[in-house]
Nucleic acid binder design. Structure first.
Length: 479
RNA sequence: GAGACGGUAGCUCAGCUGGUAGAGCAACGGCCUUUUAAGCCGUGGGUCCUGGGUUCGAUCCCCAGCCGUCUCACCA
């Protein structure tokens, strides 16, 4: 049971009194002449403007008062004078408009002695009476839980947060534009899949009543996008959510946004050019710069060309030229000595990979294409012609995180079936026969790539947590 | 899943060795017509996360739980 506290009661009383006076405290259509930002861009003295927004602070001086009005584009000061307004209107502002209320005002622009562009209010309307108090803007809200559970308050009070999400939207728009300009077509493929494929992550399960079947929220769109390559769409992409039923951390949210791109007749190298062009162009157009300052002061330089290095070479460079010539037992010992942990029964390639993931990847701040990973690590990629123990792939690492993996996609249906069978380890029901059927009809050789949009935005905005770039990150429901 | 830390007014926080709570801002009532983190005077506002325990007495100590933050684990 919600206790109506005193603060709320005072506001509810005001709401009631307004209704009794025949004033609707919740307004209706209100036509503004411009946004706050537009008003600021044309600060001609005595120009009349009509603006709408939320009152985020106010300073009552008796027969006059100042208030700050905030809309989606910015903030502007209002000057409300008794001598300018009718008694009724002045009374409305003085006694009925509170912090957090949404109002519409008309008045003329002027600049105060303190140099602040201000609207001398000549008339106003209450458009929404907030019956809960808004924290005073200066103090804001800091409690992470409140910020996330009541993101709207976070957005009202914390400009940085608002800017991050505006920027995210522009990043996604730029990515679409970049791909559309190059002849890629955006498509949508199933979120609910009978067999979750394209990644080895744990899926969420659901049930379709009418069909009487279990379905899984997708962990990746890959296998459906490849069906489209079979179908003759040669350049396709999808920007949409993936769902993985795994831990939540600074870098993981159960649902996250992924861009997947496929280009027929391309390979992992054409994907390198594409992603390098795409990310630098996005940074250039959205941020207007290629060097990004991170939350901890570290810098990320996106200036191309980006470093390309083979997985083996990178490991040798970092942990010793002899890493791959010593015995597997010695590798284990050295890895343990470095403080790297892995399961006791981990195969040799996983020991090296643990060393890569724990000690090398986090140090790669500037963009690095790590290429030619061991075939065991990647089941959907083509083996390399000169060395079949590795695959034609890259992992693009920026900001110490994997931002984009890309492959020369495996299109031999016989090898693909073998890899799936090895992976399914006897669980025939996990084999996506429908996908294999499509591959058997012939898929063109292709380059394919996934780009983690959340992590890309984290990198571009220099924030520390994935929750800073997802509007409503997953939280435990409130008790 | 494990560990560390935390949960006190609408917001931001303080609260000693155990004696049933404080500040600033916000709110309410005053004064003040170019202020801007406005100021001054006054008033009201608390399930100190929840439940047990110890104690004459618990916001404080102990136990359990809930929730959160961080780290680790999991994570193509």
């Amino acid at each position: 049971m919600e206790q109506f506290n005193e603060l709320m009661q005072a506001r509810l009383t005001k709401r009631q009194k307004l209704l009794e006076r025949g004033i609707d405290p919740y307004g209706g259509r209100f036509e503004v002449s411009e946004s706050v930002a537009e008003a600021r861009r044309n600060p001609t003295a005595e120009r009349e403007v009509t603006l709408a927004g939320r009152i985020v602070s106010h300073r009552d001086m008796g027969k006059s008062m100042f208030a700050d009005l905030k809309d989606s584009t910015g903030k502007i000061q209002l000057y409300i004078q008794k001598k300018v307004l009718s008694d009724e209107q002045f009374d409305l502002f003085k006694h009925f408009v509170d912090l957090g209320d949404i109002v519409g005002v008309t008045g003329k622009l002027f600049v105060t002695h303190a140099g602040e562009l201000t609207v001398r209010v000549e008339g106003g309307t209450l458009l929404s009476k907030a019956v809960r108090p808004l924290p005073k803007e200066w103090y804001g809200i800091k409690d992470t839980e409140t910020r996330l559970r009541q993101r709207y308050l976070d957005l009202i009070l914390n400009d940085k947060v608002r800017e991050t999400f505006v920027l995210r939207s522009r990043v996604v728009a730029e990515i679409r534009k970049f791909l559309d300009d190059r002849g890629f077509m955006e498509v949508e493929t199933p979120m609910m899949q009978p067999i979750p494929g394209g990644a080895a992550a744990k899926p969420f399960q659901t049930h379709h009543e009418a069909l009487g079947i279990d379905l899984f929220l997708r962990v990746a769109p890959e296998l459906y996008l490849k069906r489209l390559l079979v179908g003759g769409f040669e350049k396709v992409y999808e920007i949409n959510r993936n769902f993985r039923n795994e831990g939540i951390s600074r870098r993981h949210n159960p649902e996250f946004t992924m861009l997947e791109v496929y280009e027929a007749y391309g390979n992992y190298e054409t994907m390198m050019d594409l992603v390098q062009g795409m990310i630098t162009s996005v940074a250039d157009n959205v941020l207007d710069r290629l060097v990004i300052k991170r939350y901890d002061g570290a810098e990320i330089d996106l200036t191309p060309p980006w470093r390309r290095i083979r997985y083996r070479d990178l490991i040798e460079e970092r942990v010793g030229k002899d890493w791959f010539t010593i015995s597997a037992a010695e590798r284990r010992q050295r890895a343990i000595a470095m403080g790297v942990e892995f399961p006791k029964d981990a195969p040799d390639y996983e020991v090296s990979n643990a060393v890569y993931e724990k000690t090398i990847e986090p140090t790669l701040l500037n963009p690095t294409f790590v290429t030619h990973l061991p075939a065991e690590l990647v089941v959907l990629a083509k083996p390399s012609k000169e060395d079949p123990s590795v695959v034609d792939v890259f992992e693009l690492v920026i900001n110490g995180q994997e931002i984009a993996p890309a492959y020369s996609e495996l299109n031999d249906p016989v090898i693909q079936r073998q890899r799936f069978e090895a992976q399914a380890a006897g669980h025939a029901e996990k084999l996506d026969e429908d996908f294999l059927l499509a591959l058997e009809h012939g898929m063109p050789p292709a380059g394919g790539m996934g780009v983690g949009i959340d992590r890309l935005v984290m990198m571009l905005t220099g924030v520390e947590s994935i929750r800073d770039v997802i509007l409503f990150p997953q939280l435990r429901p409130q008790a």
